[in-house]
Design a protein around this nucleic acid. Structure first.
Lengths: 226, 226
DNA sequence: TGTACATCAGTGAACGCGCGTTCACTGATGTAC
DNA sequence: TGTACATCAGTGAACGCGCGTTCACTGATGTAC
């Protein structure tokens, strides 16, 4: 009943890895179809043609599976952003625009995964565990870089706010990012998150509005504010 | 077993109204303490010292109760904003700042109710029903007014976006609001929502950051963008 | 190449729990005469 | 003011369901000699 005995490359290990992936895929499909809380081990098991208890060969329990999905999603979002940053235009403003669009596109393509990342912890699930905070860094990193490239002379930020961002920066190994840039990036991220959230929850849809314009205004206002 | 037989003012009606209120209060307490999904009729019944089926005297079913909580919350938020607008400073920019703070304060004071309004519908619950869209109008109204007062010359907005907001405006009886103001207000609202959401979910807390500065920057950037 | 053994995936039954909702019924409360 | 009756709040049992998780066990699979 050990959930993760050891990692090797024998035939059994490959089989394990494959089934684990199947389980995760089924879990995501379930999240996508059912409501956001629809993650039932028994239902997943049924979907991959197995009885419930069999899953305990692959995951210690429901929370472990959930955590793994969250970490995967952070990784996926980060690499989507990194890909955009790498392939995008050299002009900093255009690149930031591309990044914002990539962020939006990722959330729209898989709203259930976006929710997994930023929703309140489900039923006593321990989000903000150390491993999760760590997993969320790379995505933020890409944004920070893009804003840095844009802000030649760091914008003004009140002293006490700056102090908090200085600490945050040092705690997470972003030593080379000016605190004002960190602060400004956070603001952009909060705005982006708000727009994305409302869009994926259908709030703009029920207003009959295509929010594309909001994103454009968001970026251009932001650039002008630097 | 009729859930809402008729409304009068006899002693029995007063009793009914009182119990209904008790039920709602218990429901909110439960939402506040348990996770966001923790709304169990049986648990509510136990809390007010009654068996489960008794609740069906007062609410048709779980969804009805939920809907009523949502409508109440919209009303409460709207009146908090209206109170702020009425009592606030005459200067339009200062008043908008006060409104933003009031919005934030309401969400912080009762995060579970804020989530109730803007979260994705819980397990197949039919949000965006007509009655709910209607209930959400008054709060938006206060915001629209404040932005109107601020925007003497309506800011530029792309044609197609303007057209959508024109329709939205007419559908909801905001005929006297310029579409550009509606568009700009929506942008402000989206930004505000993002910051508030991240704050109540504890994302800034886990970064060790006091987000007050973000709200200030938000409003001043917004005012400058008009 | 063939056999013996250890490993491990998966089963089926069971645990205790909670959920929303229905139903027939009891007993108290207000109302009409 | 007193009695008869209708109204209605609340009960307790039951329905069918699903949940995460444990446990002892079977049977297949890979491995070592």
């Amino acid at each position: 009943m050990a959930a993760e005995p050891r990692t090797g490359t024998g035939p059994r290990d490959r089989f394990r890895a494959q089934v684990r992936q199947e389980v995760k895929t089924a879990a995501l499909r379930q999240l996508a179809e059912g409501g956001p809380e629809a993650l039932s081990l028994n239902a997943i098991a049924k979907q991959i043609g197995v009885t419930g208890p069999a899953l305990y060969r692959y995951f210690a329990n429901r929370d472990s599976l959930l955590t793994e999905l969250v970490v995967d999603a952070y990784g996926d979002l980060a690499s989507a952003l990194a890909r955009t940053a790498a392939a995008g235009p050299a002009d900093p403003a255009a690149r930031l625009t591309a990044l914002v669009q990539a962020y939006r596109a990722w959330a729209l393509a898989e709203p259930h995964r976006y929710r997994l990342l930023f929703r309140a912890p489900l039923q006593g699930y321990d989000a903000q565990a150390a491993s999760l905070v760590e997993a969320s860094q790379p995505a933020m990193n890409v944004l920070l870089d893009a804003v840095s490239a844009l802000a030649e002379s760091p914008p003004r930020v009140p002293q006490d706010a700056a102090a908090q961002f200085r600490e945050w920066r040092e705690r997470h190994g972003f030593e080379d990012v000016p605190e004002a840039v960190a602060a400004r990036s956070t603001l952009l991220w909060a705005h982006l998150h708000g727009t994305v959230t409302l869009e994926i929850e259908g709030n703009f849809g029920s207003m009959g509005i295509d929010p594309s314009w909001l994103y454009e205004a968001e970026v251009s206002d932001f650039v002008r504010s630097l």
